[in-house]
Design a protein around this nucleic acid. Structure first.
Lengths: 234, 234
DNA sequence: ATCATGTTTATGTATGCACATAATAGCGAG
DNA sequence: CTCGCTATTATGTGCATACATAAACATGAT
């Protein structure tokens, strides 16, 4: 859009509103003019203003309610989007050599907490994989994964030395949602040995669960090398 | 919208497309029909389809490019939105008693890494605060904060025993953006003492930086009690 | 074959209009 | 005064239309 003099695109309106909020022309909690009014002021249609404000509301900067109008959020920044690392890309993106080594692959009966997490009944053995990912040979992240082979029997025939479990699953298995949890742990003997770090080091842990409908496909725990950081990409 | 028989709302279209993707009617990497075609199929206008697909693209489920069309993302779930805890709400939301205690409040010269992080020149002392937040008296999170008093001189007069530094800043100081980093550390002597945990425990660390224009207002480090978890809220 | 150019096409955005919906405000009956 | 209905109003959504823009594609010159 070539931005003719007075005419505003929704991005321009959004930027203008953002500026007013951050300049405190409109203070937290205050009601701002309604869409029609802003449309007139900015010389654009109400649709354009709506688009701009909707985006700001999604970012948590505004709170909108029908009939009640739009007000500046009292407490912005309730959420932050973190980039979920795609191990291979992350390592190769730094110009380092990516490698994956499977440490364990066996059928194992999930402990009770994993049974709950995977929503599998009883203790029938399912596929258990441990993989170490390295960057230029240095341990980068240790992955421990359960694959619900009741839901994905084909996983039993996959050759994970050729394609990583994650890449195989993404490519082969339908899924529709998932959830993440971030926590921290002190390196125990095993983690320290695998990651080649001191026992007791602080390690960032990312648990990810992937599901298709009501069924849980897989549950992974990524334990990162000491010093690893995740940050907002926005 | 009362959803008359054939007529679809953008949410309905979005759900239908989501279903096709997760059912793998449209496989990862595949091109999907263009907007006009889908509009005809769903019996709605192109605008409605556009709205639906735009949302899915924002979620990372689709990749869209002008002229090239829309295809199913090869690797979805590149990002996840985490709820950034508002300590007081989080604790009170669990029905526990919130309390904050200021452990340190002094002018201090920032070490070089903090100087860089705050983009302040030289080593002129700025405000340094340490606060412990408790839930039912149990240590919950330990906050260490630098406030750039060159940018916010008023902070020198604020009484943070009445209002927490975070709440004061949110209410009093304009800002427009920020960034977050998540990492892990092993509890050192001081953290262990303050949080009442064993030395060497794995602790989740959240660093947050808040800025207004080019100026950094404040930089906070939150060190959570052992076992704390952050999870996606989406 | 390579490169520059123009053409085509799918998405991106703006507009005006209409109506749906939620929620407040106001009114009247009891 | 309270309860419940109605009117009002700001946002939410849908549609048809028009034009902008990016990128793939085709064409033609060198």
């Amino acid at each position: 859009m070539s931005a003719p003099a007075g005419r505003k695109t929704w991005q321009a309106v959004q930027a203008a509103v953002r500026a007013r909020i951050s300049r405190r022309d409109w203070k937290p909690g205050a009601l701002i003019p309604h869409e029609a009014e802003l449309a007139q002021e900015f010389g654009c249609s109400r649709g354009t203003v709506n688009r701009a404000l909707r985006g700001l509301a999604e970012d948590g900067l505004l709170e909108r309610r029908r009939r009640a109008g739009t007000r500046v959020a009292l407490n912005p920044q309730r959420r932050a989007a973190f980039a979920i690392p795609l191990i291979r890309d992350e390592i190769e993106g730094k110009g380092q050599q990516f490698a994956a080594r499977i440490l364990t692959r066996e059928m194992r009966r999930p402990p009770p907490d994993v049974q709950a997490r995977l929503r599998v009944a009883g203790a029938a053995p399912i596929l258990w994989l441990e993989t170490l990912y390295t960057a230029d040979g240095a341990p980068y992240v240790f992955e421990a994964r359960w694959i619900n082979t009741h839901a994905v029997p084909r996983a039993l025939d996959a050759d994970f030395t050729v394609i990583s479990p994650n890449e195989w699953l993404v490519r082969e298995v339908p899924f529709d949602s998932g959830d993440f949890t971030v926590s921290a742990m002190a390196a125990d003997g095993r983690s320290a040995a695998v990651l080649g770090c001191a026992e007791g080091a602080g390690l960032l842990v990312l648990d990810r669960r992937t599901q298709h409908g009501a069924q849980i496909i897989t549950s992974v725990r990524l334990v990162f090398h000491p010093g690893y950081r995740m940050h907002t990409r926005s």
